[in-house]
Design a protein around this nucleic acid. Structure first.
Length: 537
DNA sequence: CGCATTTGACCCGCGC
DNA sequence: GCGCGGGTCAAATGCG
C-alpha cells in the first residue's frame, strides 16, 4: 500500500505538470531545473566516461582539436571534484569508486607535467594556471548546482505537498465563509425552511435530505427542494427517519472519541438559535464520501492505515458491513465503512467519514483531501446558488463531458453523502488505457498524453488526466476486461488514481467549487423549478 | 509477545 | 416502554 507513495513522489511528470499548469513562475522554475539537470548530467556523464577514456586519451591525446579541450576540462573537473569536495553524490554520478578518483588525483598531477609537455607548444604555465582556476571555479559551481538541484527537488516535493494542502484548506475556508454569510443573512428563512423540510420529511420519509436542515441555503427552500429530490443510494441507506436526529445521534456518539473534533461533542440540536459554526462543523464531520467500485478485494487501498474495529450485519444486505478506523495517528477521527452491494457482490462500497487530524503521505492525503473536498461540496451544494441535482450533473459533465451523473449525492443517507460511482461505464473510451503492469498493481496508469483536449481546466490546471477524473467522476470500465481476475481491481486502480496524484484532489476541489459554489446562472431557473417540485415531492 | 482481527455485548436513538 | 437497527467497545482469538 505504501508502494504507490514513492512512485507518486517520483513521478516528475505528474508533479511538473501539476505545477507547470498552476503558475507560470513555477513553470519557469521547473524548466530551469530541468535545464540544470541537463547541464549537470551532461558534463558529469562525460566525466564518468572520460575517466575511462582518460588513460587512453592521455596516451593518444590529440590536443590540437578543439573538441579535445573540453575533454581535458572534464577530466580535470572530475579530479578536482573528487579531490576537493569529496561529494558522494558526485562520485555516484561519476559512477566511479573512490579509489578511481584517487588514481585520478595522481594522474592529474602527472598530467600536469605531461600536459605541460604536450601543451607547452602554446605557452606556459600562466595560462594553464588560469585555466585551472577557471575550471576550479566551474567545478565548484557545478557542485553547487548539483546541491541546488537536490534542494530544488526537495522543495518541489514540499511545494506539491503544501500546495495540495493549501487548496484543500482554501476550499474549506471558502465554503465556511459562504455558509456563514448565508446564515447571517438568512437566519429567519432558515427557520422556515427547516420547518418545511421537517414537514416534508414526515411526508416523504426517506426521500428527505438531511443536510438541508443542517446547512440551509439562503435562497430559501428552493435548494432544499432540489436536495430533497436528489437520488438516493438505496443499498447504502435504506433506513428512514428524521435525519436531523440521526445527525445528532451520530455526533453525540462519535465526537467524544475524536480529539480533533473538539470537546464540545454535544452538538446542539440544529435549531436556528444554535451557533452556526457548530452545526456547520457537525455537518462537515458527518459529511461522507462513498465510493462504489468493483473490487474483489475486501478493501480498497487508499494510502491510509486502517484498523477494523467492528463488523455488523446490515439489514437488507447479506454481506456484513465492516468498520474501519484510521490508525495512522492516535485519535484520528476518520472512519470508513466497507460493505458489498447487496445487488451486486462485486461492488464494494467504501464510505469515508471525517477528516484526518494528522499529516498524511501524499497518496493518503490526496484521498483524504478528496473526501474533504467532497464534504465541502456537500456543504456548498446546499448553498443558495447551488443546485443539488444540477450539481451532480454539472459536476459530472464539467469534469468529464463525455459522461454524466457518476458523482451523486445521496439523499436518503442520514448524512450528506457524495457517492462516487465507479461501477458505471458511460464512456468506454475513457479507460482505454492499457492495464497496469503486473509489477506495479497499485500504480495507476495515467494516460497523460493521450487525453482529449476539450477537458476543462480548473484553477488553470487542465484535467487532462482522465484517470484523475475517474476519481471523482468515477466511472470506470465495467468491461469484461475488468472482470478478469488477473486485472487489478477497479477499486485499487481508482484509488491509485486519487492517491497517486495529489493534483487530482486540488482539481477535484476546484471543480466542485466551481460547479457548485460558482452559482451557475442556470441554477436560478432550476431552483425555481425544483422549488416547486420539492413542494410536490 | 505484540498487534490485528473477530465477535458478541452494549449503547444510543428512533419508531411504534 | 419496548423492539429494532446502526454503531462502537472490548474481550477473545489468531497470527507472525
Amino acid at each position: 500500500m505504501d508502494k504507490g507513495w514513492g512512485l507518486t513522489l517520483e513521478s516528475d511528470t505528474a508533479t511538473s505538470n501539476f505545477f507547470s499548469s498552476k503558475t507560470s513562475s513555477t513553470k519557469g522554475s521547473f524548466l530551469r531545473l530541468n535545464q540544470q539537470r541537463d547541464m549537470f548530467q551532461f558534463p558529469i556523464s562525460l566525466a564518468g566516461s572520460r575517466d575511462d577514456s582518460q588513460r587512453t586519451s592521455g596516451s593518444s591525446s590529440s590536443p590540437s582539436d578543439d573538441t579535445r579541450i573540453p575533454v581535458d576540462e572534464v577530466d580535470f573537473f572530475s579530479d578536482k571534484k573528487s579531490r576537493t569536495f569529496d561529494d558522494d553524490r558526485v562520485k555516484k554520478e561519476h559512477g566511479e569508486p573512490a579509489r578511481a578518483s584517487d588514481l585520478d588525483v595522481n594522474t592529474g598531477l602527472l598530467l600536469l607535467t605531461g600536459r605541460s609537455d604536450q601543451s607547452t607548444v602554446d605557452d606556459g604555465v600562466s595560462s594553464d594556471m588560469e585555466d585551472r582556476r577557471a575550471k576550479d571555479e566551474l567545478a565548484q559551481l557545478q557542485v553547487e548546482l548539483k546541491r541546488m538541484n537536490a534542494e530544488n527537488q526537495k522543495l518541489k516535493d514540499m511545494l506539491s505537498y503544501v500546495g495540495n494542502n493549501y487548496t484543500a484548506l482554501q476550499m474549506h475556508l471558502v465554503t465556511l465563509m459562504q455558509q456563514q454569510q448565508n446564515r447571517e443573512t438568512e437566519t429567519i428563512q432558515e427557520q422556515h425552511q427547516i420547518q418545511e423540510v421537517k414537514s416534508e420529511e414526515k411526508k416523504h420519509g426517506e426521500e428527505v435530505m438531511p443536510f438541508k436542515i443542517l446547512d440551509p441555503g439562503p435562497s430559501g427552500g428552493a435548494e432544499a427542494a432540489e436536495m430533497l429530490s436528489i437520488h438516493s443510494s438505496s443499498e447504502e441507506r435504506t433506513r428512514s427517519g428524521t435525519p436531523q436526529n440521526n445527525v445528532e445521534k451520530r455526533i453525540g456518539r462519535e465526537s467524544p472519541e475524536s480529539e480533533s473534533w473538539g470537546p464540545n461533542s454535544k452538538v446542539p440540536k440544529l435549531t436556528s438559535g444554535k451557533p452556526i459554526d457548530q452545526s456547520v462543523e457537525a455537518t462537515m464531520r458527518k459529511a461522507r464520501v462513498s465510493v462504489r467500485a468493483r473490487s474483489q478485494a475486501p478493501m480498497i487501498t487508499d494510502g491510509c492505515q486502517w484498523r477494523k474495529y467492528g463488523q455488523k450485519m446490515a439489514k437488507g444486505n447479506p454481506c456484513p458491513r465492516a468498520y474501519y478506523r484510521c490508525t495512522m495517528a492516535a485519535g484520528c477521527p476518520v472512519r470508513k465503512q466497507v460493505q458489498r452491494c447487496a445487488d451486486d457482490r462485486t461492488i464494494l462500497i467504501t464510505t469515508y467519514e471525517g477528516n484526518h487530524n494528522h499529516p498524511l503521505p501524499a497518496p493518503a492525503m490526496a484521498m483524504a483531501s478528496t473526501t474533504a473536498a467532497a464534504a465541502s461540496m456537500l456543504l456548498s451544494g446546499s448553498m443558495p446558488s447551488a443546485d443539488g441535482i444540477m450539481n451532480q450533473n454539472l459536476l459530472a459533465r464539467a469534469i468529464l463531458p463525455c459522461s454524466s451523473s457518476m458523482a451523486t449525492i445521496s439523499a436518503s443517507a442520514p448524512f450528506p453523502t457524495v457517492t462516487l460511482d465507479l461501477t458505471h461505464s458511460p464512456n468506454p473510451l475513457q479507460f482505454r488505457s492499457p492495464p497496469p503492469p503486473p509489477l506495479q498493481p497499485q500504480q495507476f496508469q495515467v494516460p497523460f498524453y493521450s487525453q482529449p483536449q476539450n477537458l476543462p481546466q480548473i484553477f488553470g490546471q487542465p484535467l487532462y488526466n482522465q484517470s484523475k477524473i475517474s476519481g471523482l467522476q468515477l466511472s470506470h470500465v465495467p468491461h469484461p476486461q475488468f472482470q478478469q481476475p488477473q486485472q487489478p481491481s477497479l477499486a485499487d486502480t481508482v484509488t491509485a488514481a486519487i492517491t497517486n496524484d495529489p493534483g487530482f484532489t486540488a482539481a477535484l476541489a476546484a471543480a466542485i467549487k466551481s460547479i457548485i459554489g460558482g452559482s451557475h446562472p442556470n441554477s436560478s431557473s432550476n431552483t425555481s423549478n425544483n422549488n416547486t417540485s420539492s413542494n410536490t415531492k
